[in-house]
Design a protein around this nucleic acid. Structure first.
Lengths: 222, 222
DNA sequence: CATCGACAATCAGAATCTTCATGGTGATCG
DNA sequence: CGATCACCATGAAGATTCTGATTGTCGATG
């Protein structure tokens, strides 16, 4: 297992590298996008961890360039909650996001998840899915209700996609807050309720897929 | 959920403890590294919050000592960024760190993230189980009795899942109250009986799996 | 070995407490 | 300035707990 760490800050590279090696990965480093592209094309990495803001060539452009020849899994390190980043990233087939500042063990958890997902099945998790009259296209960030394009807010998309990705699994509000809002969000539990409500409204009759688990949280039940 | 708070300043311990208990944790305290090592080895904590600068034995040395026998998750509280980065590597298996001064809600967010990550990696092995006509799917929070979905209350699920997780083990009412209800539940023993009764009703003929141990408690016998 | 006493477990239901969906409000951000 | 979001208050639906009565179990004893 060999990964490539791309960031212009040497401190971040060092931290990530130490953790990765502790997990049994072999880790190479690149200090900017140009370097990253060259290295990613020359070798077969199992995963690339890529910062967005970098000199010479930014992370997204580097991804686009790498994707021309390889489909190495990529995890993006982006500044907090940038909507544009997410939209952009889905188009490029980004496998996961971690927002800065992040805790190294959290990043490692994502790394392991992505790697095992790739190994487990080559099937792309972001293929469009259909549940009766509800069509969900995560890579295109589009949702159709009975063929009609649903216009939802960013949070609704994020929430729905996370629920669907973990469909048939009970999710606590804390878990949702951590995964959809970010681990550094500290706010009210009930915030989740509010967004669930709005999401249900957006889904019309297919609100039935979102099940309330009393005393627990929610679940997308297909 | 039990955590150990290690810091030589009693004010910090108190603040952290109060927040932790508010989140439903049970919290013990230690005033220095030596004490922490002794306590961490004597008991199974779900998490340790450890200061770096302490008399007698510093936080890092305490971690190293604890790691010899346990792999309890550890969050480090350090005074400055560089104190953590430079002085010691990441090979101690630290799960996260928070720099002082910190805001208690931030610390709590990290605590919850670390704990849920640990639990996720450990309990993700919750494939659905079947005992004759009784199907139990913990991750989906679903129970089927002869193929029919059983609609149960939160406590019934919690109780059943705990019993099943510890199947074939005798569980006292006190143990059940502590684990299913929480350490801070001060109520009647008979409460357990009531919920056992309702659970048995929900399980129909498969009530037979729940065995009462006279003068002792209950057991799920497969 | 039948009976009895003592204790343990079960049960039903009413009072109390929790939780959730909802609508509204003010803050925030582009 | 409009969209979005976090948060709060509220009431209704639902869950939990306790009480006290009843049933069940065990072992001692005559």
């Amino acid at each position: 297992m060999k990964i490539l760490i791309v960031d212009d800050e040497i401190n971040i590279r060092n931290v990530v590298k130490e953790y990765a090696e502790h997990e049994g990965f072999k880790a190479d480093e690149a200090g900017d996008g140009m370097e990253a592209v060259a290295m990613a094309k020359a070798q077969d990495y199992d995963l690339i961890i890529m910062d967005v803001m970098m000199p010479r060539l930014d992370g997204f452009s580097a991804c686009k360039e790498i994707r021309k020849t390889k489909d190495t899994p990529i995890i993006i390190l982006s500044a907090r909650d940038d909507e544009y980043d997410q939209q952009h990233g889905f188009d490029l087939g980004i496998d996961d996001y971690v927002t800065k500042p992040f805790s190294p063990p959290l990043l490692m958890a994502r790394v392991k998840a992505v790697v095992s997902r790739r190994n487990a099945s080559r099937t792309n998790v972001t293929e469009p899915m259909t549940f009766e009259g509800l069509e969900i296209n995560m890579s295109g960030r589009e949702v159709y209700v009975d063929g009609k394009r649903a216009n939802m807010t960013p949070k609704e998309y994020d929430l729905l996609f996370y629920l669907v990705k973990n469909r048939n699994i009970a999710l606590t509000r804390d878990k949702l807050l951590e995964e959809v809002w970010g681990y550094d969000f500290f706010g009210d539990d009930r915030t989740v309720d509010t967004h669930i409500k709005m999401l249900r409204n957006s889904l019309g009759e297919y609100r039935k897929f979102i099940v309330t688990l009393r005393g627990m949280g929610y679940k997308f039940e297909a």
